[in-house]
């Protein structure tokens, strides 16, 4: 199978918000990061993938199956999910979660689940209620990784976690995609995390897809320059993606190309690209 997820012209209309003709493809064996500000439409896309909300138009194929197809329920056996809030009832313990998931997932592996729990240092005798936010997230991740999933869909899975735990978890996702049949779709506000692990970046802004590109190609496409207002005026208007004026200098994101002499340039990070594109200051 070529693509783990194929979204074509996806749209959804709400009162006061519209998701506009989103098209993106997540190739098998890759990690795609969904970025965008709060309310941009990232979680809406994830909800649409699982039919938590009905789409107004377009199509979604996951692991080769249309998500409106009857067989999609079976396909869900091969999808691991971590939502922004851990969704297990407060009263359960790890052994209860194991029993629950064993009866839900066809390929559930208790050994794998408890191995992940041990790896993450999760206490077996404590109720979910007594877990910290990090522990709860790790539990959700352990569940997502313990049923032979080929695709992980992660909605803000690393939010609220400290950098050490985040790094540990990113390593788990990286290991997961060593198998070329495994793919990850991850939405996060922590763009530095995505920059570490993603092969593709999709930027959603106000319900529209601004870009969906290979990370390295994207980073090569732009330059971050520090200059004066006069220097900026020397640049072609079409070359400037966005700029920010401060008291001492002007910072701008420009398309990679020849620059007038004297302008200092550096490689931008994904966060810079996102910030300049969302400001629409040109």
């Amino acid at each position: 199978m070529k693509n783990a997820i194929e979204i074509r012209n996806l749209s959804k209309e709400f009162k006061g918000f519209t998701l506009n003709n989103i098209s993106l493809e997540l190739p098998s064996g890759c990690i795609m990061g969904l970025i965008g500000e709060n309310g941009a439409g990232k979680s809406t896309i994830i909800k649409l993938i699982f039919n938590s909300i009905k789409r107004s138009g377009g199509s979604i194929e996951v692991l080769g199956c249309d998500n409106l197809d009857k067989d999609f329920e079976k396909v869900k056996n091969e999808i691991g999910v971590v939502l922004d809030e851990p969704c297990f009832p407060e009263c359960v313990r790890l052994k209860d979660i194991n029993a629950m998931m064993k009866s839900i997932y066809k390929n559930w592996s208790s050994d794998e689940f408890f191995a992940y729990c041990d790896k993450f240092g999760l206490p077996r005798d404590k109720r979910f209620k007594g877990f910290s936010k990090g522990m709860k997230m790790k539990t959700s991740i352990a569940v997502a990784m313990s049923h032979g999933a080929r695709l992980l869909v992660l909605d803000e899975a690393t939010s609220g976690l400290d950098p050490i735990i985040r790094d540990e978890i990113l390593d788990v996702f990286n290991d997961f995609t060593r198998d070329e049949n495994h793919s990850v779709l991850i939405s996060s506000h922590i763009i530095s995390d995505l920059e570490k692990i993603c092969d593709y970046i999709a930027f959603i802004h106000k319900g529209s897809l601004r870009f969906c590109e290979e990370k390295d190609a994207l980073l090569d496409k732009y330059l971050l320059i520090h200059c004066t207002d006069e220097d900026l005026k020397k640049l072609q208007h079409s070359q400037i993606v966005g700029y920010k004026r401060s008291r001492y200098e002007t910072e701008a994101l420009v398309k990679n190309g020849s620059l007038p002499s004297g302008i200092i340039s550096e490689k931008p990070c994904i966060e810079d690209i996102m910030l300049f594109m969302s400001k629409e200051s040109v």
Binding site: E73, I79, V81, L83, C87, C91
Partner: peptide
């Protein structure tokens, strides 16, 4: 009440159980 507090229903959409199930 436990289901409601844990937002289980949203999570269950992503599980291979289906709404009918």
């Amino acid at each position: 009440e436990y289901n409601e507090r844990s937002k289980w229903e949203l999570y269950s959409d992503a599980l291979p159980v289906g709404r009918k199930g």
